[in-house]
Simulated scan of single mutants.
Amino acid sequence: MRITVSGLPGSGTTSLSRYLAEHHGFTMISAGEVFRECAKEHNMGLAEFGRLAEQDPAYDKMIDARQKEIAEQRDNIIIEGRLSGWMVDKADLRIWLFAPIGCRLERIVFRDQIADVETAKVITLEREHCEAVRYRQYYDIDINDLSIYHIILNSEHWGIGELGAIVDTAIGQLQAVRGKSA
C-alpha cells in the first residue's frame, strides 16, 4: 500500500505520517524533513533556502524525483510532502491535511522555535508563495487544487490519534477490498 500525506506547513502532515508509519509498520519518507536538512546544510532559513530553490530548480527536482523513485520501488510506504499526492502515481490513498493559518502558525512557532507568531507568519506565507510559484513553473501543479485527494481532514479539530483513527479506518477498508478481490 502506498499512502501520501500532504498539506501546507504546520498542518500536521509529518505527525500523521509518523503515526501511520508506526501504527501500520510502513516506511516513511518526508520531503519536508529533507528540505529542512538541505536548508541547514546550506546554513539558511527555510524562506531563504526556498528562494535559492526558486533560482535553481535542481534542489526541488532532486527531492521530488527521489521521493517518487522510492515510492514506486516500495510497498507499505507513507510518502509525506506537499507534492506527494501529485507525484506518486500509484498511490492507494491520498490525504490532504488542512488547518487554518492561525493554528498552523502556532505549531510552526513551536516546531521551528521561531520567536513569535508574526515572524512565523511572514516566513510561512513567503514560503507558501514561493513553493506555489515553483510547483506551477516546474510541474504545472496548482497546489490549491485538492481534487486528487481521497481524504481531506481539518487537523485543527482533531489530534493525531483521532486523525490516525479516521485514516486507519480508510486503510482497513482498502485492505478489506483488496482481500476480497485477491
Rank of each mutant, 00 (worst) to 15 (best):
P57A: 14
L52K: 15
A120H: 03
M44N: 08
M62G: 07
M62T: 00
I101L: 14
V109R: 02
I78M: 02
L93F: 10
D56Y: 13
I114F: 10
D64Y: 11
E72T: 08
W86M: 10
L83A: 07
C103K: 02
V117W: 15
A53Y: 09
F49R: 06
T119H: 04
Q113P: 11
V88A: 00
R104Q: 09
E106S: 08
M62Q: 09
I79W: 03
D60P: 05
E106R: 12
M62V: 00
C103F: 10
V109S: 03
Q113V: 07
P100A: 04
R94E: 03
I77M: 04
D116E: 14
I108N: 01
L52Q: 11
E106P: 03
G85C: 06
A39H: 06
A65C: 10
V109D: 02
E106I: 00
S84E: 04
R107T: 00
D92S: 09
G50I: 00
Q55A: 15
D112A: 10
L52Y: 14
F49E: 05
K68T: 13
P57Q: 12
I70C: 06
A71T: 02
F110E: 15
D60S: 02
H42A: 12
R51H: 12
W86N: 11
I70A: 11
L83K: 03
A65S: 14
G45Y: 13
E48T: 15
D60H: 12
R51A: 15
R104E: 01
D56N: 10
I70T: 07
Q55I: 03
R51D: 12
I101M: 09
I95R: 01
V117H: 14
D89Q: 14
I70F: 14
M44G: 08
R74E: 12
L97K: 03
K68P: 05
I77H: 07
L105F: 13
I114E: 11
A39C: 08
D92A: 02
A115V: 14
Y59V: 05
D116V: 04
I63Q: 08
P100M: 00
L105W: 13
D75T: 14
V109W: 06
G85S: 08
I95F: 14
R104A: 02
H42C: 03
R107K: 04
M87T: 11
V117N: 09
E118L: 06
V117E: 10
A71R: 02
T119I: 07
D75L: 13
M62S: 04
E118Y: 12
D75I: 12
F49D: 03
E106V: 00
Q73K: 13
I95Q: 01
Q67M: 11
D89T: 12
Q67R: 10
E41Y: 10
A91Y: 04
T119N: 04
G81M: 10
V109H: 01
G45E: 07
I77S: 00
R111F: 06
A58T: 04
E48P: 13
D64A: 07
N76M: 03
S84T: 15
E69I: 08
A47P: 07
N76W: 11
G45L: 10
E54K: 12
Q67Y: 07
K90F: 07
A53N: 05
C103N: 06
I95G: 09
S84V: 06
T119S: 13
E48F: 09
V117M: 08
A91F: 04
D89W: 05
E41R: 15
M44V: 01
T119Q: 09
Q55Y: 11
N43H: 11
V117S: 03
W86E: 13
D112N: 15
D89R: 12
